[in-house]
Amino acid sequence: MMNVVSPDTTLAERQRRFAAAIRDPEQATPADVSPRRMAIYRELFFNNILGVLEDAFLAVRARLSKIDWEATARRFFTEHSSTTPYFHRLPGEFAAWLERQPDLAPPYLAELARYEWSQLHLALSPAPALPEALAPNGDLLAGAPVLAPLFRLAPYRYPVHRMCEGESLQDEEPARLLLWRDSNEQVRTLALSPTSARLIELITASPHLSGRRLLLCLAGEMNHPEPERLVEQGWALLEQLREKGVLAGTQPATQGGA
């Protein structure tokens, strides 16, 4: 016969104990819930979380044995206090949780998860509106280059983009990766040189400067002996970025930004 919960136990406390018992099989089953029912709840809740994570992290899952993958997912389910009630945001919390884990094995796992989450996040996010004055074929030196509305530039120690393509890599290979969603709603990745990455950062920080001004700023940072030559080379780079969809076009440069 089941025990009766004390009338002094608040509903909130009962819910807390029930949730804790679902998340952690080591926790005692609440007195007013049968062990059989609790076992069903535990399996259903964990399998839901596991399914969401497996769909979001195909490359991470492929790099772990079934036992190690489920053990990692179980630790996350047991230890992590979620800040969102939405399942589609849970992969982001898992990626952030992995980055806080010391001595993670294999060591690239957290970066790989962050990369996969970045791809998913860009695919699912609503796109901000582009400038009304956008000129898709505008002059990239006279006008201010406009980046694709959804993008993310980040450093990685490992070649995670190649790992996701199935290459069996595990050594460090530092890269600056630009991820963006193109006009066909496809998330794409480009490994950038330090100069290209810095140019993207300058466009992000000063979105109303003309391409010419941005390239001259870059030349100044580099102490380039021939700034005009860098402008010429930079124009070719900007054109390549527009062809790939990284740049959506141009908008008028602000006064003093030309």
Score class of each variant (00 low, 15 high):
residue 188 R to L: 15
residue 164 C to F: 00
residue 67 I to W: 03
residue 40 I to W: 04
residue 156 Y to V: 04
residue 94 F to W: 09
residue 152 R to N: 07
residue 202 L to A: 03
residue 193 S to V: 01
residue 152 R to Y: 02
residue 160 V to H: 05
residue 232 E to A: 12
residue 228 E to D: 15
residue 250 T to E: 06
residue 227 P to H: 08
residue 62 A to M: 00
residue 6 S to H: 07
residue 76 F to N: 01
residue 67 I to C: 00
residue 73 A to F: 02
residue 182 D to G: 08
residue 118 S to K: 03
residue 20 A to C: 07
residue 96 A to F: 07
residue 102 P to Y: 11
residue 43 E to M: 04
residue 145 P to D: 08
residue 68 D to A: 00
residue 121 H to E: 15
residue 197 A to P: 13
residue 135 A to M: 13
residue 26 E to V: 06
residue 158 Y to G: 09
residue 186 Q to N: 03
residue 13 E to V: 14
residue 24 D to I: 09
residue 22 I to G: 10
residue 157 R to T: 13
residue 33 V to I: 15
residue 191 A to Y: 11
residue 161 H to P: 02
residue 163 M to V: 11
residue 109 L to S: 06
residue 106 P to N: 03
residue 3 N to E: 06
residue 25 P to H: 09
residue 199 L to A: 02
residue 33 V to T: 15
residue 235 W to K: 13
residue 68 D to N: 00
residue 168 S to W: 02
residue 193 S to K: 05
residue 161 H to L: 04
residue 137 N to D: 15
residue 203 I to E: 00
residue 81 S to H: 10
residue 30 P to Q: 07
residue 41 Y to E: 05
residue 175 A to V: 12
residue 66 K to R: 13
residue 97 W to C: 01
residue 175 A to N: 09
residue 198 R to Q: 07
residue 5 V to E: 05
residue 73 A to S: 07
residue 221 E to Y: 02
residue 105 A to Q: 14
residue 125 S to Y: 05
residue 237 L to R: 11
residue 194 P to A: 03
residue 77 F to A: 08
residue 142 A to R: 14
residue 248 A to N: 10
residue 179 L to P: 10
residue 196 S to G: 12
residue 57 F to P: 08
residue 201 E to V: 07
residue 248 A to Q: 12
residue 247 L to N: 05
